[in-house]
Amino acid sequence: MSFVFSEVPHTSIVRWQKVKDFLQSVDLEMSEDVEIFVVAKEDDRIVACGGLSGKVLKNIALDESLRGEGLALSLMSELLKVAFREGRHELFLFTKPDYQEVFESCGFKYIEQAHHQVILMENSYNIDLYKKRLRKYKHTGDVVGSIVMNCNPFTLGHRFLVEQACERSHWVHLFVVKEDASFFTFKDRYRLICEGLVDLENLTIHEGSDYIISKATFPTYFIKDKRQIDSLYTELDLNIFRNHLAPQLGITHRFVGEEPLCAVTNEYNQQMKKLLARPSEAPPIEVVELGRIEYGGEPISASRVRKLMQHNRLEEILPLVPPTTYALIATMMSKEEAK
């Protein structure tokens, strides 16, 4: 039997729809962020496909009648070729636990699972390197806190949260979400956080990684407007945090801001309380939800600042952010006006 392989880019609407139909026929929903699919056809009928989204391989599926190592491995050869050609060598993939072995034979290693329904694998040992690097920053104490933040952009609300955490902890590790999928770039977000917290002494600010709220561990976080909350991915992200990252730093607490407005973040907070405390080999982590500070009767949040930017109301942003953030916003807005 011979299969014909081809690539389907997002721009070819008719063929894209055929891939969607095929995925549906094997009970998979097409992920929205796939850029390119590799499909295998037999007599002009799709029998297998796999998608590439950033450095993540997903929606890998085979026709029931042809499931055997042969076609799976041919498909993976083609898919890896495409990924490498795009310059993406360090790859992740999502699959069902049943297929772990198939992908191990393609050079992928198991990282973590969620719900016994989905597993995350990678084709490098990078998580081990990352863990080793983290260990250098370990501080021992009764309360070692952690915070994960995107800060799009850094506001006085974020600052309040970090201050509170630092007061209650011996040491605090702050992780900045690294994925460049927000209005403000990672570089700007990271700089504003460092500048805005320079006076806190028991704090380490870490650049995030692929293993902490990234498109690999938590793809739905970056599709917020869809209001998609996939509890599978929140669990995956939290399991990695608990089992792989937190033990390296001896983290005992995780601080989060109360989230009355954003559904994704709120759901994440609630799940976090449950998951980080349940029995496991790794020690439990206590989740502390901190209230938000308000200004003018409304909580200070990054989304509020972005909305004010859209409406060109610079003077109203002033009381919500530290001077460093304000300076950047003022420059951005004057550039926008000059256009």
């Binding site: 190592e69 491995l73 993976m76 050869s77 490498f84 034979s105």
Partner: peptide, 19 residues
């Protein structure tokens, strides 16, 4: 630079070279 050759098919080998 990072490079590869081969396939994952039976009787073949998939080789990656990483600096």
């Amino acid at each position: 630079e990072t490079a590869h050759a081969g396939t994952l098919e039976s009787s073949d080998a998939f080789v990656r070279v990483i600096p």
